[in-house]
Amino acid sequence: MLTVEHLNVWFGHPPARVDAVKDAGFTVAPGESFGLVGESGSGKSTILRAIAGLIDTWSGRIEVAGQPVAARRRDRAFYKTVQMVFQDPYASLHPRHSVDAVLSEALRLQGMDDIDRRIARLLDDVGLGRGFRFRYPHQLSGGQRQRVAIARALAAEPRLLLLDEPTSALDVSVQAEILNLLSDLRAEHGLTYVMVSHDLAVVGHMCDRLAVMQQGRIVEVMTVEDLRRGAARQDYTRQLIAASAGYQRA
């Protein structure tokens, strides 16, 4: 479904050039859920944005569904295949657009017809119900906003969903609801996920395999079973696992 090879992403120009991702490579099979784990600044979100076409300054090879993607402009077919859910549901919805406006715009841009019926279905799919159709973001809680954002991503009926820390801005009880929703949607629609998170437990719950990133490089790709068994090969991965287990008094 997704192949990334020798991906380099940088920002700015020399001498102030920052290399955010260095020679990253991984593949994700159709229907698989793949995690990208690392601390802030490790380049995990940057990879996602480069795949989505939100960053122009990259080199290497990105293939989606067997097709190499263009360096800059992506065509409509690309956006029908790949969609993204952002980290902060408070920043990813336009403050002046109602749920109705957000979803109908997404549907129109994808050239869909029968907008009313589709909006109702999308809202049902993400567990909001039709009563939410005409609300504005400020009338929604964080979890409800994230559901709207997921509905927007689903509007295009994509096959690959990029999830950028979709629950890190939410309370744990809401996180559980959203993670369950994402699992259900993957089963129902046969979606492929690439999920970025700093939380190993979340990635362990959601993903089949994961890549551990440190300072722009992928240091280890492993299965979640290996993660659970503590069979990490790299020191850095072991550090992350130890740290995520909580606080041990020094």
Partner: peptide, 17 residues
């Protein structure tokens, strides 16, 4: 650079829209 602009871009919205 807001996320909601990025999201609209991902829907295929052009610069004019």
């Amino acid at each position: 650079n807001a996320d909601y602009i990025a999201a609209a871009r991902l829907q295929g919205a052009g610069p004019l829209r």
